[in-house]
Simulated scan of single mutants.
Amino acid sequence: MTTWFASPADAATRLEANGYLADAASATTTFLAGALEKPLLLEGPAGVGKTELAKAVARATGAELVRLQCYEGLDEARALYEWNYKKQLLRIQASQGQEWDQTHDDIFTDEFLLTRPLLTAIRRDEPTVLLIDEVDKTDVEVEGLLLEVLSDFQVTIPELGTVAAVRRPFVVLTSNASRELSEAVKRRCLYLHLDYPDVARERQILRSQVPELDDALAGQLVAMVARLRELELKKAPSIAESVDWARTLIALEIRDLDDDAVSRTLGVVLKHVSDQERAVKELRLPR
């Protein structure tokens, strides 16, 4: 059994050393996911650090990150495996006159198997973090593909049999909650809801990511980001965009985030015209 983290405190310390400031709930749940060998489902709005937590776990533990990026239309061939049909056809053509049973056994072997992220993570014998990113973007049917992996850490290939994990990966699923996930998936996971950090915590994150940012400017920036998130926007600023804004201010040598500076740099944090127009109107910024 792999020991990913010795304790919640160990998880918090090692994640911070790798660029991720975990609060008590995040550190505890991350520790438990490793200790109990249970998948971790992270849910919350886009841009709050769900994917980054999985990446930080990989960095902190020296594990390889295997990522399955989910999208509408994702199927078994892209998530689990598929057969290299062109190569199989060439083998069949080269085996003219051979009994079909023998040809069948020849073409359904590892040599012709194209592994996709889920099967790749299951077969690895080195420490692996399997990130199933934005699972809520897939069709409901795809969740059925995940159940065997999430329950038993194995994949069944009809032509080869069951492939069980030699070394269980650390599994992280992320969801922006665009749709409700099935109870079957949730039941197999530990659950953690991540939201935007409070002002004090975001300020801490900014100072760790952009150490050249002074306290006063950091305070102004996180206060403005908090105000923007209170507006009814199509896409609220993410933590990563807050960091980008801080770096932008430093690049432009802006020492004071006044209304003019906000107006000039608003495109760094708001990526929709309607959101920018709302911010200008609601915050009474100069055009």
Rank of each mutant, 00 (worst) to 15 (best):
S208E: 14
L89P: 10
F112M: 14
D260S: 01
T109A: 02
G73K: 06
E16N: 07
L65N: 10
R124Y: 11
A11C: 05
L74G: 01
D110G: 13
P211G: 13
A24K: 06
G73Q: 04
W4I: 05
W100F: 04
F153N: 07
V135E: 07
A184Q: 07
Y85E: 09
A77C: 08
D110Q: 15
Q93F: 03
R67H: 08
D23W: 07
Q69F: 07
A22C: 11
Q98T: 14
V268N: 10
E43R: 03
D244K: 03
V66M: 02
G47D: 09
S238L: 10
A46N: 05
D23A: 02
A11I: 07
G73Y: 11
T128D: 08
E159H: 02
S182R: 00
Y20A: 01
L231C: 13
V225K: 09
V172E: 06
I92M: 09
G47E: 15
V172A: 03
R287W: 07
V129Q: 04
D105H: 13
C70R: 00
M224P: 15
V185K: 08
E241S: 06
S95G: 02
M224C: 14
F31M: 14
E232W: 06
I122N: 09
L36P: 14
S182I: 00
R284P: 11
